[in-house]
Write a protein that binds this DNA or RNA. Sequence first.
DNA 1: TCGCTGACCATAC
DNA 2: GGTATGGCCAGCG
Length: 114
Amino acid sequence: MSESFSSRVYDVVRRIPMGKVATYGQVAALAGNPRNARIVGYALHSNPEPGVIPCHRVVFRDGSLAPGFAFGGPERQRALLEDEGVSFIPPAKSHTNAGEEGWLVDLQRCQWQE
DNA sequence: TCGCTGACCATAC
DNA sequence: GGTATGGCCAGCG
């Protein structure tokens, strides 16, 4: 293939429909290498086309968003996804800690299904 | 040109 | 059940 793995990653992420999210492992698998989940993140980190590539729709296997890096803050990512109709699940419960971080995406409802 | 690091995921102890 | 480490592959210095 002429295109690099990262190019494929961008193409896959770009295909994620609104209101849906995909995991790094899934994007990596669709890109052709299920083991390249790390490269997917690396490729998105490059983000050659901000605004075109919805990196905020890519989440961890657990449904949690990336830690501190983000493109403007984890809450920014949560707002974008929530605005698209993605359901979020507050981790809390046991602890009375009202941590804003830790919000998990409802992969069971909003995970992108081919 | 070679080596290291890295938005991860899975398995082992 | 939780924590720690390994392994895969690609881009960058």
